[in-house]
């Protein structure tokens, strides 16, 4: 039986992890490779690197990070943030990432999903979407709207319809990031996650809002999520991955523990 995946997200800017640095005395903690390695050892099931700078001239720095990570981390990891073109996808995959996630670029040009899936396989292409709750309308019957540019630009598109289209185009997984929940630490958007999980056939990853281990429990049970992204709750050392996993295991959620090896 599949276990529920816990996926730390590292926001990377100019080769450094942005979250957490100010609260850390250990200077190494700003190094994405070192942080990824630590989470890997602790039992992260996967890691997401999110490129904050996300302009093409800065992209080389992230490529270098991915390249170094490939030598140290033997779990899957993905790269997102500012992936615009097929060529952007190709570069991060060649550097060693398993998956690449597309967000705004796919909204503007949905064919980038199909191109990626054809060339690299669906399992490499993650469709990530930022979603905001709005009044239900004819255009947005679910009351969940797609927004881009970090939540600044509403697109007048229904999130559920867009997710279904993304699946049809060949996305292998879906990351549902709630703009309303993001950064609140009040919990994931459980209702939205559940609608997505029940509507789609591909795995659904919840994102945005995790503050305490109970939030992961909610989104895995009520929200039907296959995986959940966490960030600040571990970056600030408030919780640890083994601690969160133990909490979930105690409540009957199937999770993977790091095996003791001989």
């Amino acid at each position: 039986m599949l276990t529920k995946r816990i996926i730390p997200c590292l926001d990377v800017r100019a080769g450094l992890v942005t979250k957490g640095i100010a609260f850390r005395e250990n200077v190494d903690i700003g190094d994405p490779v070192a942080m990824a390695r630590k989470y890997y050892e602790e039992g992260a099931d996967e890691i997401v690197f999110y490129d904050i700078a996300a302009s093409s001239d800065r992209r080389d720095i992230l490529i270098d990070v991915v390249d170094r990570v490939a030598r140290e981390i033997f779990i899957p990891y993905s790269v997102g943030g500012g992936i615009r073109t097929f060529e952007d996808m190709r570069r991060v995959l060649l550097a060693g990432a398993e998956k690449v996630s597309v967000n705004s670029a796919a909204v503007r040009n949905p064919q980038v999903i199909a191109q990626g899936a054809r060339a690299f396989g669906s399992q490499c292409v993650v469709l990530s979407m930022d979603v905001k709750r709005v009044e239900r309308s004819e255009k947005i019957p679910s009351g969940y709207e797609i927004v881009i540019n970090g939540g600044r630009t509403p697109m007048g598109m229904d999130a559920i319809q867009w997710a279904m289209r993304g699946e049809d185009l060949g996305a292998g997984e879906l990351v549902v990031n709630s703009i309303d929940a993001d950064g609140t630490r009040d919990g994931y958007e459980v209702t939205l996650t559940r609608i997505m999980a029940d509507t789609l056939g591909i795995p659904v990853i919840a994102s945005g809002g995790a503050g305490i281990p109970e939030h992961l429990y909610e989104v895995f049970t009520e929200g039907h999520a296959d995986a959940a992204i966490i960030a600040s709750m571990i970056h600030y050392n408030t919780y640890t991955i083994p601690g969160i996993k133990q909490y979930l295991a105690d409540r009957g959620v199937p999770i993977r523990k790091v095996p003791m090896m001989q």
């Binding site: 599949l2 276990t3 099931d45 399992q123 997984e173 591909i202 795995p203 296959d226 993977r256």
Partner: peptide
């Protein structure tokens, strides 16, 4: 059943 997704992605025992 539909609760099992395809692709089969993740950690399985």
């Amino acid at each position: 059943s539909a609760q099992y997704r395809v692709p089969h992605i993740g950690w399985n025992d």
